[in-house]
C-alpha cells in the first residue's frame, strides 16, 4: 500500500529461493504468514520449512519493496485449521502486488531460459509434448 518508486523487475533478479516460493504461494490467493509457510512446505514436499525469522524477514523486504502488500483482511473470515491456532481476527494477510506479479513472471521466464539451455545441452530431457511451459501460463 506504500507509494513506491518502481524499478525494473529484471533488476531484482535472480530472486532468492525463499522470495520465489513466497511469491509463488501468494500467486493464486492472499494468505497469512502461517498459510504461506504451510503452502511452501507442502509444495516443496517438506524441503523448505520457513522459520518465523526467515518468513517475516522476507515478507518485510517484499512489502518494503512493493512486491507484496498487506491486504485489508479476509472477507470470508478464516476457516479454522482445526488446530486451535493463532487468533484468526489478528492474522495479517498478504497478497501479491502488480509489481510483485511482474517480478515473479520475470523470474519464472528467467528460470525457463535456464531450463531450455540445460535441455539444449542435453542435461535435461526435452519437454514432453502437450505440456505448456511456464511462460505460456
Amino acid at each position: 500500500m506504500c507509494a513506491k518508486r518502481r524499478v525494473d523487475p529484471e533488476g531484482l533478479l535472480p530472486l532468492t529461493p525463499v522470495a520465489l516460493n513466497i511469491l509463488l504461494a501468494l500467486a493464486d490467493e492472499e494468505r497469512h504468514g502461517y498459510g504461506i509457510g504451510v503452502e511452501v512446505r507442502e509444495r516443496t514436499g517438506g524441503e523448505m520449512r520457513l522459520g518465523p525469522g526467515t518468513l517475516y524477514g522476507s515478507l518485510k523486504r517484499m512489502v518494503d519493496g512493493g512486491l507484496v502488500e498487506e491486504s485489508e483482511g479476509h472477507a470470508g473470515g478464516e476457516a479454522d485449521d482445526g488446530r486451535g491456532g493463532y487468533d484468526a481476527g489478528r492474522r495479517r494477510y498478504y497478497r501479491l502486488t502488480g509489481f510483485g506479479g511482474r517480478v515473479l513472471a520475470a523470474e519464472l521466464a528467467r528460470l525457463e531460459d535456464v531450463v531450455r539451455t540445460a535441455q539444449a545441452k542435453g542435461f535435461l530431457p526435452p519437454p514432453r509434448r502437450g505440456v505448456s511451459s511456464p511462460g505460456e501460463v
Partner: peptide, 14 residues
C-alpha cells in the same frame, strides 16, 4: 524511503 523491490536482503533506502 523503501525503494521498490529489494528482496535480496539489503534494503535500499532512497
Amino acid at each position: 524511503a523503501r525503494e521498490a523491490g529489494d528482496v535480496s536482503g539489503a534494503t535500499r533506502p532512497a
